[in-house]
Every structure is written in C-alpha cells, then in structure tokens.
Design a protein around this nucleic acid. Structure first.
Lengths: 217, 217
DNA sequence: TCGGCAATCCGCCAAAAGGAGGAGGCGTTA
DNA sequence: TAACGCCTCCTCCTTTTGGCGGATTGCCGA
C-alpha cells in the first residue's frame, strides 16, 4: 500500500478548511493531521507535526503565508508547501516560488487537480495552476527592469565609506583605525547612517549595504 | 457542439506522428489536418493550413523546432504552438517560451495530459510538463543559487532560524520574542553561529546570511 | 558675510552584544 | 546503557552599541 501522506492545512477560513479536510479525507492515502488559522500558528504546527505537505493560504492575519512559508523552510528545507490562494498576482507567485514553495495553486482549481498536485508536490515536482503558469512564462519574457537608486545618495561620501566598512563586519574601533579617525567620529557617522536610512541597528545597515552592492567599495 | 480543433503535427519521426495522429483522431473535437517531417516544411504547412494548434518537435533536420517556432509566429503571432520534445534542458525550455511557445511538453507525458494541454493551449493558457515547471521555477531562483551549501548546513535548524532573524536586524531580545525563547538561548545560538561560520560579529553573520539567500527565510 | 553642511572630535549613559562557564532535558545512535 | 548532539536556560563579566548632548574647523553657495 502507499504510505499515508500527512497534511497540514493553514487557512484563516474555518469553513474552507472544513470542506477541504472532508475532501482530502475521502482519499485513502491522504490524512489531514492538523489545521491552523493563521501563519504563526501554521509555522508552529509544521514544526510540531512534521507533515509531509502543507497547504498554505497567502492572505491571513497575524502572519501572512509568504512569511510563514519562509519560516517553515528555515527549519525544514525539504518540506513540501503548496500555496493555495486567490491571489493571481504574478509578484506573489514569484516571491513564493523563489522562497521555495513547491507549488502555487488558485482556489478555483477542481478537486482532482488538487489531489494530483499534492501527490506530485510530495514527489518533489513543482506544480502551478494553469493560469499561473502563464504568469510565470510572462515573467520569463520580461525579466525585471529594477534599478532603484535610493536614499543611498543622501549619504555623504564619508558615511558611505563608513557604511562599507561596517558591512564588512568591523567594529567602530576597527573602522576608525581603517579610516584613521577617532572612534567617536565613526560613531557619529554610524548614527547619521542609521537616521538617514530609517533603521535602528548596524546590522540592518550592513544588510542594506550588501543589497545595494556597497560592501565591496 | 464544440468546434473542431485543427491540428498540425511537426516531427521527423514518421512512426511517432502516426501514433500521435491515431491518438488524436479518437477525440471527436480534434482533427489532424496536416503533418510535416522537418521545421521548414512545418512552417510552410502552418502558413497554408492555418491550424488552430501546432505540435512541434525540437530536434529536427533542415530547420530545428526553435527556429520553426519563431518563423511561424512571425506570420501568425496568435498561433498556439506546443513544443513536444525529449529535451529536458532548461535552456531549450526558456528559449521556446520566450520566443512565444504556448507550452513545452516532454514526450513522456500520458495521453490525457496531452489532450488536456492541447485544449488549454488553444484557450490561451500556457502549459508545461510537470518536470519542466520545476526547471522554470529553478530559473526563477537562479539569482540566488543557494547551491554553495558549505558551512551553512553545519548550522542546526534552530541556528538557521536564528540567523535569518538576525539578518533582518533583530536584537537578541527581539529574536527571542519572535521564536518564543529566552534571550539567553538566542545568545547561545548566536555564539554557535559565529563559531561555526568562523566569524566574530553578528554583522558578519547577517552579511553571510544575505549573501547566501537566507535573510528572507 | 552669513548660513548650512560635512567632518572631526568630546563626554556621558543605558542597553545590547560578546564571551565563558555550567546544567538539565530529550532523542538518536552506538 | 552510555555517549552524543541539540535545545533550552542560567550567571557573571567585559566590551560594544546606540543615543543623547555638546564643540570646532573648513568649505561652498546665496
């Protein structure tokens, strides 16, 4: 016999979960082992129950599906997660698949397609709603323009220099040595960087620097 | 009744065409109106016969499927063309879909999937073999190869989770709140992360996380 | 010439991080 | 059973940060 596939349902609509559960339980090889009504609860249940697959809604209170997905994959990178949502947004799709969702299904799919998708996802395949396949292909045709130059220009040259050293992990004292400054001066620069970037810790500043290709300066 | 879907088969294997034709003709709503054994011939027939959909092989003499696809779309931009091939190469897939193929199917698919795909493609949907969906998604993820696992898998799940929060700029206290832990526990995790990654500050850890695509997790 | 700004420093303070040790629980594996 | 790794938490300690408040110099443009 085929091993039982243990399923976790995460969706904030109780009725939707109930219906889905009834539908899935009719299959001999499927078992719903848990439910959650928001992302945070979903992450916890995924951790506790170690399901074979998670059906995850996108739009939920407390923690949305995207973040929940990310959290689940941190502790269980091989977990099969199928997004099950109403969002036909190509951005949502791309984000989820990039993050590592095993599939992205719209709630308008029929039962057979869902069942088939569940089994395929557990086997390691990626599955998409037909409509979303088209969106993904469209994305392929228009890569992504992106080129945001930003509040980075509001930084003074010295501040940028300080930031680049900061992003390499130096302490204020080390940065001061490297730039031949007093530590107090470096602290002032760091303060200004934080204020201008609207953040509150040097760690965030470092991440910002890396994401803007500033760490190599 | 549903209108007849007029199909053109382009494949250099005669036997494959025969079999496919027999299969398709069994469907009341499908009709094979023409065949071609190479890309050039395929382009001509597509021009003459104005089919609703073309099933097009990739590897063919005289003119390959990619070029034939491009040619067909010049004169009939709205023509539905399904690539039907043995190539599981992600490059082939991406090229064909960029050029404008309506779908990319491997020859190992079953009949039902093919019939379903034909009807969906004519309706304007994009269709992919399940295996190729995974390849496309993988392409989406390429910016972050994730591949260089390295020291990263020396981290325990909890440490990875801690690291991902750290990379978002959270203080130990905030991470503790997020993970529902004591701050002291988070400090232990951070210490272990620093030791395992061979670095000496949380800033470096955050940078490492970002460069390894772990910050969104 | 004056105001603004970048850049350089001070001191002070509370909070956070880094580092070392120990310790109990829990599950897997030898 | 014992050993091991992981997770959890603790204390005690030093160093680093973040966040104030100043201050001085020099440059540039209105």
């Amino acid at each position: 016999m085929t091993p039982l596939l243990r399923i976790l349902l995460v969706d904030d609509h109780t009725l939707f979960r109930s219906g889905l559960k009834a539908l899935l339980q009719r299959q001999a090889d499927l078992e719903v082992i848990g439910e959650a009504a928001d992302g945070l609860e979903g992450v916890k249940k995924a951790e506790q129950l170690k399901p074979d697959i998670v059906l995850l809604d996108l739009d939920m209170p407390v923690m949305n599906g995207r973040d929940a997905l990310a959290q689940m994959l941190v502790s269980q990178p091989e977990l099969a997660v199928l997004m099950l949502t109403v969002s036909e947004d190509g951005e949502d799709l791309a984000e989820c698949m990039k993050t590592g969702a095993r599939g992205y299904l719209l709630k308008n799919i029929n039962a057979d397609f869902l069942l088939d998708s569940i089994r395929r996802a557990v086997d390691g395949d990626s599955v998409l709603s037909p409509e979303m396949t088209a969106k993904l292909v469209a994305r392929l045709r228009t890569p992504i323009p992106v080129a945001p130059q930003s509040e980075l220009d509001s930084l003074t040259p010295r501040e940028r220099e300080t930031l680049s050293h900061l992003a390499r992990g130096g302490s204020n004292k080390e940065i001061a040595r490297a730039l031949d400054l007093a530590e107090s001066t470096v602290k002032v620069h760091v303060q200004n960087i934080l204020r201008k970037l609207g953040i509150s810790s040097r760690v965030q500043a470092a991440v910002y620097a890396v994401e803007h290709g500033l760490e190599k300066l």
